[in-house]
Design a protein around this nucleic acid. Structure first.
Lengths: 195, 195
DNA sequence: CCTCCTCTGTATACCGAGTATAGAGAGCCT
DNA sequence: AGGCTCTCTATACTCGGTATACAGAGGAGG
């Protein structure tokens, strides 16, 4: 739950409340990662349930609930920073999945997908580099990290798409692979289904 | 819903049922992306609700429900292949979030996070390149795409981590950074907030 | 035969991430 | 006063993901 941990990290700088946490979160990520307000409240409830956060009385306005981090919360946050991020299988990625699926179906469609995505990625890349150009290189470290991350992964995506396209080009001449789409298949195809 | 669309893509090859769909999915992704069975059934229910899939009578065993793609499902699948994948803000990434948060808190901890993650990423990279070495370069295109994607993004992650570390090294000497905690941004309310 | 065990297959409960929206209260303006 | 906007909290809902319950079929062995 990286959102919850991020809220904990913000709360470590002092007690706060829902909307303020949302704003702080978005400020720290330069507005690149907007955070839905509703998610803040549900996440706070979960953090409170787990004892990582406690509600403090807001004497002035009833409409504000101030939350503060607990000692257990500080401990949990420390653990989060210490433990490695990825342990299970790598996260599924929509575009990769799409390309895997479309390639088996029709290689021409795959080339279309690649070209569409490449255009989008290059455009994003230009946007990110523009943002970076406007940022002093001694600016906020977190913001620079985030920008660099976006740039590196988007660059990698472009190069990956190029490699996919050339792979298709290299193999397309030799291997036909897929039937030309027919409706009304399954009537007769039933025998092979195990029963 | 890329999982649902992937199931649709599999169903385009002919009717099938829950467990078989899980197995086909994992076979197409070379076992890199295991798919929980439960998710298959709930996703099938959603697809059926939306009319993209229909339950066919399972003649032999009652314990098997055979699903087939509908014309509407084929249309939806075509649309999925045609439409660009990413339109909203880029997906939040746990590691980037962690690094952004930890950097603001303590740069030494940030270096620790970077080094831990770098070790893990390099190890993954070795694993992926080993898998690639064992794959003939004219093998299944989808599998090669998937493998390349993992390699490209993991490489990018390593280079990103290196760049983060050198940024910290470059700026660490000059700039103190921890803000001395200022709540009270907000008009009148919490002059009572304990800090 | 009957029991136990395993394998296959389906289904549900639950959690977290994420979105949309309802609705209360305060301040302001005319 | 009425009405508007802004702030703030809260809930309902969807989807991705995991674990687990549950039912049936078939085999092994007493």
């Amino acid at each position: 739950m990286s959102v919850g941990m991020s809220l904990l990290a913000i709360l470590e700088d002092g007690p706060s409340y829902g909307l303020q946490l949302k704003n702080d979160f978005e400020q720290r990520t330069g507005g690149i990662w907007p955070l839905n307000v509703g998610q803040v409240y549900t996440t706070l409830q979960r953090l409170q349930r787990d004892g990582l956060v406690e509600a403090e009385s807001s004497n002035a306005a009833e409409s504000q609930k101030i939350y503060g981090i607990t000692d257990q919360g500080r401990q949990r946050l420390s653990d989060w920073f210490r433990e490695p991020a990825a342990d299970g299988p790598p996260a599924r990625e929509g575009l990769v999945l799409k390309l895997v699926m479309v390639t088996r179906r029709n290689r021409d469609d795959a080339v279309g997908v690649i070209q569409t995505e490449r255009r989008g990625a290059v455009q994003l890349l230009q946007e990110y580099t523009r943002l970076k150009r406007e940022t002093p290189s001694d600016g906020d470290l977190g913001w620079l990290f985030l920008l660099d991350s976006l740039i590196f992964t988007t660059e990698a995506r472009v190069r990956w798409l190029d490699s996919c396209e050339s792979r298709i080009a290299a193999s397309g001449d030799t291997a036909p692979q897929r039937r030309p789409v027919e409706p009304a298949t399954h009537a007769f195809e039933h025998e092979e289904v195990p029963s």
